[in-house]
Design a protein around this nucleic acid. Structure first.
Lengths: 247, 247
DNA sequence: CACGATTATATGTCTAGACATATAAGTCAA
DNA sequence: TTGACTTATATGTCTAGACATATAATCGTG
């Protein structure tokens, strides 16, 4: 396990433009605690006067801080320092086929099981819906260069995505199909660790009891549940890499 | 394990503005693989014509995509789809003490081991530095309501943070101390899954062979390595939750 | 052909406006 | 007092320009 070797190096400092200077000024006050959580940041028109610039310039600085969740902006009220997030993550997960082909490896896909049924109570709990509509339950496996990459266990809500009934999941992975046919508006991920049970171990070709990284993802489209998926990755070989720029 | 119950519900749909629609359109094409890594995104003037809007509007969409590392923008050349880092995540992890107290649980801290030494070759590799300066190596444990929460294994580069030599890590957790004394500018996380070895199992009060979520974090301050830390969480009980807004 | 100078071009930043919209705060009536 | 209505205001988005700047591509020269 060589982590240090392929780690990216931080970039050099660059000449700051005005909006970056404004952003850094505010950021510094927040990080040093000079402006504690809840503190109201000067209004845009105050910053305009302070830095003698147009509103769009301070707006760009504040928008980026809001995007980074350092501040919260409320209409009519102003902008406020946010309480630091305890542990949160923003994941951007493209579909697995795209991920593997982007790595220059051969993508393989095997459908293990696919069945259509009226949602059981377990299905409804998993999808977070109360009415018992039809669902599709899929188990499948993704591989890279013929090595198992991840196993997928998915539930699709047919009342949200009726077109999924006609999709051929033996040919196309459900994740790819959904991304092409149902742009999501919101998603939630949960990352955890488990040890492989018999079925998972067999599908991933690892030992029973070997560590697995588990990602649960729930996807919504305009307040309607689209799909719930659980992915098992071999924990020894697969890693999630994250990088965060503070400056 | 009840995931569905405490899961946040999606908010209602909001009327999408033009720049958000542009951003989502491009994002969808990237995530589906329709525009693979390296693909050149239409120029701003092309998108202006396509969406019949001003340049600032498409610029805002592209700037946000660049900030999210989905695309790379190069002057004169254009904007290009970036190669995804298999899976990328942005983690914002405040210190564990704040995390536990925010959950309304009693924070406990035990220093297991703390020693100051000249960096060994292993230390240098881990910190990604070439010169052999002084380092502090710390092992400690965080608990919530007297239940082990995480074990920490940390290395601090004293040539970057000489003040750390005078800190009392028996009293204050190193993460909290660093957060208050050394604002970082850049950080990188790697998430993986392992099974507990003897030492970890004992410290976390779990069985040997039980799954653990591992977070490795490297922190820099303006191109200088600050600290490298590895955290083991009991995988059955601890989860990373992530939420991503697509709109 | 190799290499330096020039040019064209896409992005980076900024301005001085505009209207939209959510909402805190104030006003008034039941 | 409470609820409904109005108003003031800060942010959200957008425009049609401008100049700056990095750099790919071209051109010219030795």
């Amino acid at each position: 396990m060589s982590l240090a070797s392929d780690r990216a190096k931080p970039r050099a400092t660059e000449k700051p433009t005005l909006y970056k200077r404004i952003r850094l000024d505010i950021e510094t006050r927040i990080l040093t605690g000079e402006w504690p959580p809840g503190h109201r940041i000067p209004f845009e028109h105050e910053l305009m006067a302070r830095y003698r610039c147009s509103r769009m310039t301070v707006n760009k600085a504040l928008s980026e801080l809001a995007q980074a969740d350092l501040i919260e902006r409320r209409r009519r009220a102003g902008s406020f320092v946010r309480r630091p997030q305890h542990m949160s993550a923003v994941l951007k997960i493209a579909d697995i086929r795209a991920e593997i082909t982007a790595l220059g490896r051969a993508y393989g896909y095997q459908l293990i099981d696919c069945r259509r049924r009226t949602a059981t109570s377990a299905d409804r709990a998993r999808l977070g819906v109360s009415t018992a509509g039809k669902v599709i339950a899929i188990a499948c496996r993704h591989s890279a260069d013929d090595v198992p990459f991840a196993v997928e266990d998915r539930l699709i809500d047919l009342s949200t995505v009726p077109e999924a009934a006609t999709a051929d999941f033996a040919r196309e992975p459900p994740g790819s199909w959904l991304l092409h046919h149902v742009p999501w508006t919101e998603a939630e991920h949960t990352i955890s660790a488990v040890v492989a049970d018999d079925r998972t171990a067999e599908a991933l070709d690892i030992a029973v009891g070997a560590p697995c990284l588990v990602i649960d993802r729930y996807t919504w489209r305009s307040a309607r549940t689209v799909t719930a998926v659980r992915l098992h990755y071999p924990g020894e070989t697969h890693r999630l890499v994250a990088r965060f720029k503070g400056g």
